[in-house]
């Protein structure tokens, strides 16, 4: 194993983590501010990817496709919030789980109805399809580098949005005391719609960015949703900082686990069983990470103890 391969894998972990952050940011805010468990968050990821694929085919422009993904998920989020979600904020978590589970069925089958059963085409633009040559003979994909940059920029924007702007202060106040900000004359309903749609839009953008290098298909959101929940639980629910740290932890653990564990086991077993055992444990690694974190910090790394 060479140093350059090792660094390249760290970068891959980082890129995966940053993408998870885009997914988790909305989820953690929606839970922190509105107290809503939103299983349908993965559907916005899917909607973003499908919108991007559609607009990429219509216009041929990758940038327009990305904007379309953001806008489509924003609208889908707003619409869902207005029609259904706002009716269940005050409900039990269980009702929320059931309703948003039903939304998954609705969105997935709805998309399949419209776009058909086979995956759609979405590819990255030519200008980003080559690789960089970094120091230490590291070769790294321009597109993945761009994902890392976009993710970090969005993280910084979100950080300022929440700590410096009026709406951020309201969001934070909402996390601490929901009744109070209403009493202070803040339009809570509008605030909730904004937060929910913004979270959905970020998920949609993540779906489009990732759909371009993976695949755009029905059901693509749910595995990512589970990972995003893992992230926000590790980071501590409601904390953007926690989501960021948790996302990077999960991204790097998963990537490095897949990379290192099989070669680690090859010291003990023959090659075929080592790769098999190694990859079995690698696929469990993030759940082991999460269970360990929660055993020692029951409210996640940056969570507030209630």
């Amino acid at each position: 194993m060479t140093i350059s391969l090792f660094i390249e894998q760290i970068l891959n972990g980082l890129q995966f983590g940053v993408m998870l952050f885009l997914m988790s940011a909305g989820l953690t805010l929606v839970f922190g501010v509105m107290g809503l468990i939103n299983l349908a968050h993965g559907s916005f990821y899917m909607i973003g990817a499908f919108a991007a694929a559609l607009f990429a085919e219509l216009t041929g422009s990758f940038l327009i496709a990305m904007i379309a993904s953001f806008v489509a998920a924003l609208f889908a989020g707003a619409l869902t919030e207005l029609i259904i979600i706002r009716k269940i904020y005050k409900r039990d978590h269980l009702d929320q789980v059931l309703a948003t589970f039903a939304l998954i069925l609705l969105f997935s089958e709805g998309i399949r109805w419209i776009f058909g059963a086979y995956p759609l085409y979405l590819d990255i633009p030519n200008s980003l399809s080559s690789s960089f040559n970094l120091p230490f003979e590291i070769i790294y994909s321009k597109y993945r580098m761009m994902i890392i940059l976009v993710g970090i920029i969005i993280a910084i924007i979100l950080y300022f949005l929440i700590s410096k702007t009026l709406i951020g202060i309201r969001i934070k106040a909402g996390q601490n005391d929901r009744e109070m900000i209403g009493a202070l004359g803040v339009d809570v309903t509008k605030l909730y719609t904004i937060v929910f749609s913004l979270g959905a839009a970020l998920a949609g953008l993540a779906g489009a960015l990732i759909g371009a290098i993976q695949s755009v298909e029905v059901g693509m959101g749910e595995p990512v949703l589970i990972l995003a929940f893992v992230v926000i639980v590790i980071g501590g629910i409601g904390s953007i900082k926690g989501a960021f740290v948790g996302a990077l932890l999960v991204g790097i653990t998963d990537t490095m686990g897949r990379f290192l564990l099989p070669s680690f086991f090859s010291y003990f077993f023959d090659n075929a069983s080592a790769t098999s055992i190694g990859s079995s444990i690698a696929s469990m690694s993030i759940y082991i990470l999460m269970a360990t974190v929660l055993i020692f910090k029951p409210s996640g790394l940056y969570g507030v103890k209630k």
Binding site: V233, S276, S280, S283, M284, I288, L294, S299
Partner: peptide
């Protein structure tokens, strides 16, 4: 040791570990 959403997720984590184990255990 955990509660609320953390409890939901940690129970999920244990189940997922078993799931991936069962898939890859020949």
């Amino acid at each position: 040791r955990t509660s609320g959403v953390y409890f939901i997720m940690i129970t999920l984590a244990f189940a997922q570990m078993l799931y991936y184990f069962s898939i890859s255990w020949p």
